[in-house]
């Protein structure tokens, strides 16, 4: 909304040129939220199409794979094909699959001979906990490193920047081996295997995997924080706040960090959602039974029911996290809600 200045009786123009947030903004806000939710559903629908039909591009017949090692009798092959509904036309299979998902039925796993949802539910908690802990590390350590770097120009900044660049270049499995070598083998502070029991046990067991998983992203978030804060630090409103006698810490918290949050949130959202996929290697290294590992195995065994379910879960998590980020943005920067600023 561009507001223009009226002539000499300029204060009089107040009535004409401003909108009260309560009245005019509410329907617009509702439309904004509904729009975001609609695009969320649309994305999920398109994703489901891609996920389901991509199976037909992969070579190999799942039914034949099931009978590996045995002599495939034609009747048995037909029987299994019929049992898993593989003989029906593709679109009908898709509709059945989609209808099942909406009822919480993800179909049956070919290898495990049980419901996909059961297979998944056994594995999902570990991965979610791992990702959640990694997200905490990424946010805390990333923000901290970024803030320290941006507030300490000179040696501190350069030291952190070099460290971050190095950390960002380390592949997760190398980081995992290094962390295990140092903290598990040398110092013996953390276990190197298994997922532990009870809340504290879990956290204790998952600390090293979460760090290994998050290290690249910590570097990423730290860099975004640093540059976003640097951008804000030179803004005039920060100088105004200084000139009014605010202490340095309240200037940083209220006027620098607060304004820098937008980009930080966007980047962290995208990355944390992406963690679900990249957790496979870490799960393998630390012997955790999560969905990352399951995904790799299932692709190997052409267990398409499980693969589709995992991919859908990951896609959903990704899209939902990003929608939440989008919905939070207007709360962080009111100009986005007004449509005058886009990010």
């Amino acid at each position: 909304m561009s507001v223009m200045d009226a002539p000499a009786g300029e204060p009089r123009s107040t009535q004409r040129h401003t909108t009260t947030p309560g009245r005019a903004a509410r329907p617009r806000r509702l439309r904004f939220v509904l729009g975001k939710l609609f695009s969320l559903l649309l994305t999920l629908f398109i994703a489901s199409l891609a996920v389901f039909f991509s199976r037909f591009l992969v070579p190999g017949d799942p039914a034949r794979f099931l009978l590996r090692g045995r002599s495939p009798k034609p009747e048995a092959l037909v029987e299994i094909t019929r049992q898993f509904g593989l003989d029906k036309p593709a679109w009908e299979q898709y509709l059945n699959w989609l209808g099942g998902i909406l009822h919480g039925d993800w179909g049956r796993s070919l290898t495990y001979r049980q419901d996909v949802s059961d297979v998944l539910l056994n594995r999902l908690p570990t991965t979610l906990q791992l990702v959640a802990l990694a997200a905490v590390f990424i946010t805390l350590l990333g923000l901290l490193a970024g803030i320290i770097a941006s507030l300490n120009k000179g040696f501190g900044d350069r030291f952190i920047l070099v460290t971050l660049t190095a950390a960002g270049a380390v592949p997760p499995f190398v980081a995992a081996i290094a962390l295990v070598a140092l903290f598990a083998v040398q110092l013996g502070w953390f276990p190197s295997f298994g997922s532990g029991d009870g809340f504290l046990g879990r956290v204790w067991h998952l600390t090293l995997p979460a760090l290994a998983l998050g290290i690249t992203y910590i570097a990423f978030v730290a860099r975004v924080t640093r540059s976003s804060m640097n951008e804000q630090l030179v803004r005039e409103h920060v100088e105004v706040a200084m000139s009014r006698g605010l202490t340095r810490s309240s200037v940083v918290v209220r006027h620098v960090l607060r304004n820098a949050l937008g980009p930080i949130l966007t980047v962290s959202g995208v990355m944390i959602a992406g963690l679900l996929v990249s957790s496979a290697i870490i799960e393998q290294t630390f012997g955790l039974t999560g969905i990352g590992q399951l995904l790799v195995q299932s692709i190997d065994r052409l267990d398409f029911g499980v693969v589709q379910a995992i991919v859908m879960v990951v896609v959903t998590a990704f899209v939902v996290v990003n929608t939440v980020v989008d919905l939070l943005q207007p709360l962080i920067d009111p100009r986005i809600a007004a449509g005058t600023e886009t990010r």
Binding site: E236, H237, R258, N259, P334
Partner: peptide, 12 residues
């Protein structure tokens, strides 16, 4: 300051 639009924190 010169530019009130830049001088007042836009998100508060």
């Amino acid at each position: 300051f010169q530019d009130p639009r830049a001088g007042i924190n836009p998100v508060r």
